[in-house]
Simulated scan of single mutants.
Amino acid sequence: MSEWRIYQGVGKPHDGIDRLPAPPPWRDFGNGEGEMTPFDRDMPAQGRHRLPHAAAYQADESTVEAVNTALYLRRPLLVTGDPGVGKSTLADAVASELKLGAVLRWPVNSKTTLRDGLYRYDSLGRLEEAGVAQRGARQDEQPTPASLGRYISLGPLGTSLAPFALPRVLLIDEIDKSDIDLPNDLLDVFEEGGFEIPELARAADVSEPVMIRPADGGEEVTVRRGMVRCHAFPFVVLTSNGEREFPPAFLRRCVRLQLPAVSEDEMRLRAIVRAHLPGADEQAEEIIELFMQRAATGELATDQLLNAVYLMSRTVKEGAPGLDGVARLVLQHLNVTAPAE
């Protein structure tokens, strides 16, 4: 196994992240100020996001190389491919193998803004507290960062930029569905490795640090002078179904990976079925053949193949659907332009 590879794509947890060298000078965000925020590196084995497919993920050579390039350069990884090829699962696989804790997930849609990912401020709760204070004749009490901190929580992006000693894994899912401005809005955050919380910065004359809740429910993050800044740049996976183009300034700051359609690789399909459903090889062969035939005329995803193999291998009772019935039930084309069934 190459020593250069931090992520090896083997599916078994190891401490390879400890061999990651110092970042390039232009991507070094560790300024030595303040304390590190701890996180549970084994959380994927315990948390609700731990899924069996993380360990069973089949990473090909180009995927392993792209992941390691992003790790070394401290750059986001933009993963493009059809639905169901394993774009989102890649984040789970890297977090699981390198023992980097629970994946921080940020699903994106057309209404998502940068602030949604950075932090949330409960302004209504703060106003209600101010009203109670006024009715209690404490009108001279001014908000301090410490009191404001009770109404602020970090989002998934903001949590990933907290000062952890090791990189967190952040999944920004379906970035191509975002508002046109979001990719450009992310540039400053990715380049600076941090961001400001204005509500805290305006009250920065009080020197005591503020403790803020992270998105994953872990240890509170210490924030000073309203600034959140990473020590280790997170491993960021941005997924795209290829439904739009991104600006050159955004693309040049990402490592790009194009995942091929899994339906074109029969050996890989067998490996995926074997990893997820050991012992189902006999039923899988004819279903894989049928899957590839149908994938040639319309869009299918690998989880549909797994569902079909499961039905054929587990539901053998009288009256259970046969091969044609399974195809009709779970191997339906995903794209509306596919030929009529």
Results as ranks from 00 to 15, higher is better:
235 F>M: 09
251 L>H: 13
270 R>M: 15
230 C>R: 12
305 L>G: 03
224 R>I: 07
273 V>M: 06
236 V>F: 02
303 D>P: 05
222 T>A: 15
215 A>G: 05
265 D>E: 07
284 A>H: 00
218 G>Y: 04
284 A>P: 03
218 G>M: 06
254 C>I: 02
258 Q>C: 10
284 A>R: 08
277 L>N: 11
282 E>W: 01
270 R>G: 09
282 E>K: 11
287 I>G: 02
222 T>V: 14
264 E>A: 15
227 M>F: 10
230 C>N: 15
303 D>V: 04
274 R>Q: 08
226 G>F: 08
251 L>W: 02
252 R>K: 14
285 E>Y: 00
237 V>Q: 11
277 L>C: 07
288 I>E: 07
242 G>T: 03
259 L>I: 00
229 R>P: 07
291 F>G: 02
280 A>C: 14
241 N>T: 06
242 G>L: 03
303 D>I: 02
302 T>M: 11
256 R>M: 06
264 E>K: 15
269 L>E: 14
245 E>D: 12
241 N>M: 05
225 R>E: 08
247 P>V: 03
217 G>F: 03
218 G>A: 12
247 P>H: 04
304 Q>W: 09
300 L>N: 07
300 L>Q: 07
257 L>P: 05
273 V>P: 08
247 P>E: 08
224 R>E: 15
287 I>S: 01
274 R>Y: 13
265 D>Q: 01
297 T>I: 12
253 R>P: 01
222 T>D: 02
289 E>H: 14
292 M>P: 09
216 D>N: 02
305 L>F: 03
246 F>K: 04
231 H>T: 14
222 T>W: 04
244 R>K: 10
285 E>D: 09
213 R>L: 01
271 A>R: 15
229 R>A: 11
228 V>N: 02
275 A>D: 12
252 R>I: 01
241 N>D: 12
271 A>N: 03
239 T>M: 01
221 V>Y: 03
270 R>H: 08
304 Q>Y: 07
244 R>M: 10
247 P>L: 04
251 L>N: 12
225 R>H: 15
268 R>Q: 14
248 P>F: 06
304 Q>G: 06
266 E>I: 06
238 L>V: 02
301 A>M: 02
306 L>N: 05
245 E>H: 10
230 C>K: 06
237 V>P: 00
246 F>M: 01
262 V>S: 10
236 V>G: 04
224 R>M: 09
247 P>C: 03
259 L>T: 00
264 E>D: 13
276 H>P: 07
257 L>G: 10
263 S>W: 12
271 A>L: 06
211 M>W: 10
